[in-house]
């Protein structure tokens, strides 16, 4: 029973850690499927986390906070679009610029608004996404296995957790079942085919970036108003890049990308668990080295896996063919 509880606990931790990854990865999916490389997921998330916490703290409304997070993230996505679509700028440089700008600006504005060294004040409960308890969760909590699964794993999360996991089928549906999705996939593979079919390439890419902005906005709001109750500098802590890694690992397809996020989330949860979990002092020599090194190895596993994938050692990852290349009509 204890082992079962441990598994439930791990899975629960995995879910919580995976939420921002799933949202950001779906965000990146829209951008990259349209042919725009987005290494600015990190910056958009961070910007949204700040905007959500700041507006939440100022207005006391969780919804206004979420809206602010989304607007901030969409604005950054449009800046990326303006540089990369309208001005054919380098997409990687633009992404780097956005990441660095946001890392600086969030702290500058945070200090200007709250004078707490870049942190926002603790958010009151009404400005946070709190856990939703599903009907009957408490009643069935003692039922073996199923009860625990229901009350611990399904129930008891905040709204954004459910949003994140609903975003996956929604993304799948949009990408594979709608006109927009068909054009989105086409514009990332063969913009000239889209152009000759009488569809605006720039228009499609801007629309994709708006969706990217919205999803990244939710991811950011989750960090500051759901997972924690305040914004703290650099709080995205590389999650945007892990999401990018998951996006590549899932080969730009919604369900595999989600699974990659869950895998990476699991690794993160496991690494946190493992640190100090072993009685290192009693082990000796090589075993000891392995045990102490394990959490770090698990930490970098997502990145190593992506490199191996890109190198073609574990399957192949073929990016949308037109990604990274500004669309200029050929003469």
């Amino acid at each position: 029973m204890e082992q079962f509880d441990f598994v439930i606990l791990m899975l629960d931790a995995m879910l919580r850690v995976s939420v921002p990854l799933v949202l950001a990865a779906m965000a990146g999916l829209f951008s990259e499927r349209s042919g725009i490389v987005d290494i600015g997921l990190e910056g958009k998330m961070l910007g949204a986390a700040f905007a959500a916490a700041a507006v939440g703290a100022l207005t006391g409304s969780v919804w206004l906070g979420l809206l602010a997070g989304i607007l901030a993230s969409v604005a950054l996505a449009m800046l990326h679009g303006y540089a990369c679509i309208t001005h054919n700028g380098n997409q990687v440089v633009s992404g780097v610029a956005i990441n660095i700008m946001v890392a600086g600006l969030t702290v500058v504005l945070g200090i200007a608004l709250f004078s707490r060294g870049g942190q926002t004040p603790q958010l009151p409960a009404e400005a946070r996404f709190t856990a939703l308890t599903w009907p009957g969760a408490e009643a069935v909590a003692d039922v073996p296995i199923l009860g625990a699964l229901y009350s611990e794993l399904l129930s008891g999360h905040n709204l954004l957790v459910y949003v994140a996991f609903l975003a996956v089928p929604a993304t799948w549906w949009v990408v594979y079942r709608t006109r927009f999705g068909l054009r989105l996939r086409a514009v990332g593979e063969s913009p000239e085919a889209v152009d000759t079919a009488g569809i605006s390439v720039a228009g499609m890419r801007y629309r994709a970036l708006i969706l990217t902005g919205i999803l990244c906005g939710v991811a950011g709001a989750y960090l500051s108003t759901a997972q924690s109750a305040f914004f703290v500098r650099e709080m995205s802590a590389g999650k945007g890049f892990i999401a990018l890694a998951a996006l590549i690992f899932g080969k730009w397809r919604p369900v595999p990308v989600m699974l990659a996020c869950l895998l990476f989330g699991f690794l993160e949860a496991a690494s946190a668990r493992l640190q100090g979990a072993f009685d290192v002092d009693n082990a000796s020599g090589f075993v000891r080295e392995v045990l102490t090194g394990l959490p770090f190895l698990i930490d970098v596993l997502p990145f190593i896996l992506v490199v191996l994938l890109l190198a073609g050692f574990v399957g192949t990852a073929v990016a949308p063919k037109a990604s990274g290349i500004p669309y200029v009509k050929e003469r």
């Binding site: 800046l79 303006y82 540089a83 990369c84 001005h87 700028g89 380098n90 997409q91 440089v93 633009s94 780097v96 610029a97 956005i98 990441n99 660095i100 700008m101 946001v102 890392a103 600086g104 600006l105 969030t106 702290v107 500058v108 200090i111 200007a112 004078s115 870049g118 500098r233």
Partner: peptide
């Protein structure tokens, strides 16, 4: 000026990368 922290410089760096790099030909 306590309100203008080191992060202001980080922000300016980002702006320089944006204008000198991504929006080079603006």
């Amino acid at each position: 000026i306590p309100k203008i922290t080191r992060e202001m410089v980080v922000f300016i760096q980002g702006l320089v990368i944006l204008f000198a790099g991504a929006l080079e030909y603006l």
